[in-house]
């Protein structure tokens, strides 16, 4: 319980000349729920994208469950990880995207079955049972044969969650999952995340603009500003009175 699930050690990331992350040090404990807040462009999304291996850090290292994610040992030296190594380490991580990224050419059920069958070599029947179970859980058991284009944004996002859950990840990443949704569809998605969080087993990282929600479910809140973690603590610490002026003015914009 004391070993961190994920460890960021002095992680930097630049896009061209712009350094978006300037030394991130961060431990995520098993089953911990962490909310990441901060102004846009502060690098929140980049943190979880690096953990998902969608973005390669410029320097520093990320340790997942004791394994170095972006580097591997090759004849005694550390070299940049190859595809095989990445696949080995990222197997425990799942992610839900801002724009859902459902596969449009597959039905809802197929969206949730493809990865277990092809990636985990599960047999079709058990993959199907598991997919249906998860789709039931997110309240979409009646949409199995629909295509993504036939359902609402909120429903798409719930499918995306079921699709990630069938892989039984130990770590789930949520990248601003409600910001592409119409306001009236936000709650149904948050509801599902709340359910998952209350089950408690997974480590969860939520990049979000929903401050109320973050306060509700997070064990810890990180405030990211100008590429560094400017403030962190329990929700009551961060959302209470803070010495940090930038955090204060950031939060004031949401209170209005």
């Amino acid at each position: 319980m004391n070993e961190p699930m994920v460890k960021f050690k002095d992680v930097h990331k630049s896009f061209g000349d712009v350094e978006v992350l300037k030394g991130i040090n961060l431990d995520l404990m098993p089953a911990e729920k962490v909310a990441v807040i901060g102004p846009s462009g502060s690098g929140k999304t980049t943190i979880i994208r690096m953990l998902m291996t969608l973005e390669q850090p410029t320097s520093g290292s990320i340790i997942v469950d004791g394994e170095n994610l972006w580097q591997m040992e090759k004849s005694g030296r550390l070299v940049t990880a190859n595809e095989k190594h990445l696949r080995q380490v990222r197997g425990d991580i799942g992610m839900v995207f801002q724009h859902f990224n459902l596969f449009p050419h597959m039905t809802i059920l197929q969206n949730c079955m493809t990865a277990p069958i092809h990636v985990k070599q599960e047999n079709k029947a058990s993959a199907k049972a598991r997919a249906i179970e998860m789709l039931d859980k997110v309240g979409l058991g009646d949409k199995l044969d629909n295509y993504p284009s036939q359902i609402s944004g909120g429903q798409k996002q719930r499918v995306a969650m079921a699709r990630a859950l069938v892989m039984r990840p130990k770590i789930m990443l949520f990248d601003e999952v409600t910001s592409a949704l119409d306001p009236e569809l936000v709650e149904e998605v948050l509801e599902v995340i709340r359910d998952i969080a209350h089950e408690g087993r997974m480590t969860m990282v939520l990049v979000t603009h929903e401050m109320e929600f973050a306060r509700d479910i997070a064990d810890r809140v990180l405030f990211l500003d100008k590429g560094v973690i400017a403030e962190q603590g329990t929700p009551s610490e961060v959302f209470g009175h803070s010495e940090n002026e930038r955090l204060d003015s950031f939060l004031r914009r949401f209170r209005r």
Partner: peptide, 18 residues
């Protein structure tokens, strides 16, 4: 094909070929 599609597939741990 939208970049998000490849990313979603990566998040599901598919290989390059998959």
């Amino acid at each position: 094909v939208a970049k998000g599609q490849t990313e979603a597939a990566t998040a599901l741990n598919m290989s390059r070929f998959q």
